[in-house]
């Protein structure tokens, strides 16, 4: 976009002029496109939640038992971390739009730091689970050996690692995008008058947050009432 794009004019039969929308510099088009992209993410995670619900209704008690054993303290902390990161991201965009480029950059860096913190906590959590023998590929999550968990728990943990893993993958991509965004701002390619990239990355970050809003209760909270690990509910 080195030089300004000048839209063409179409003239109707009465001589009235109509501006032709070009693909260049179409802010709304960029926004619409990104929302459509986010809908594909909604469908993907929607399908995974569907799988989860399907097995929840097949193996309800196993799911509650497994859920009761997740680390709610770490998971909850991460929920709050993401919440604040959504705030910093939003404020950053607001600063960009009101012309405070420097402030915007500070806010983006803050978001990056919070995102990294999230990953760190997630790492601690996974390590802890690994040391307890619960991890993809370990005996507990395979069938037919002496450590095998019940079916429902295998499925619960399988989906837990899959979905938090994919969510974490989105966080990593997000960090990459934010670093790229800072570079583009430094290069003058993103500015208060041309901030579609910033706008869309902020949307992306909200989406990542949004997914966590469901991942968190689905895995960590459904069994939270079972302080005994569900034993008292067995009929």
């Amino acid at each position: 976009m080195s030089h300004e794009y000048v839209p063409e004019i179409a003239v109707d039969r009465d001589g009235k002029k109509h501006e032709v929308q070009g693909w260049q510099g179409d802010f709304y088009g960029g926004k619409l496109g990104f929302w459509l992209f986010m809908l594909t993410e909604v469908m993907m995670f929607g399908a995974m939640f569907l799988v989860l619900t399907y097995y929840y209704s097949l193996h309800t008690q196993d799911f509650l038992d497994a859920s009761a054993h997740l680390n709610r303290l770490l998971g909850g902390t991460n929920t709050v971390v993401l919440l604040f990161s959504a705030l910093t991201m939003g404020l950053g965009l607001l600063k960009m739009r009101t012309g405070d480029v420097k402030g915007a950059k500070t806010m983006i860096w803050a978001t990056i730091i919070l995102a990294t913190l999230f990953l760190g906590i997630k790492g601690v959590e996974w390590t802890e689970e690994y040391t307890h023998g619960v991890f993809l590929g370990l005996d507990a999550l395979q069938s037919g050996n002496e450590h095998s968990r019940p079916f429902g728990q295998i499925l619960f943990y399988g989906m837990y690692f899959t979905m938090t893993g994919l969510h974490g993958f989105h966080i990593i991509i997000g960090i990459g995008l934010m670093i790229w965004l800072v570079k583009r701002i430094d290069a003058g390619k993103v500015s208060p008058h041309h901030h579609i990239l910033h706008f869309n990355i902020a949307l992306y970050w909200d989406l990542v947050h949004l997914i966590w809003v469901f991942v968190f209760p689905y895995f960590y909270m459904i069994g939270a009432g079972d302080v005994t690990g569900g034993a008292i509910h067995g009929h």
């Binding site: 709304y28 009101t98 405070d100 208060p192 041309h194």
Partner: peptide, 10 residues
């Protein structure tokens, strides 16, 4: 459309 609306940060 959104690019040059004047908004108040505070």
């Amino acid at each position: 459309m959104d690019t040059n609306t004047h908004i108040n940060y505070e």
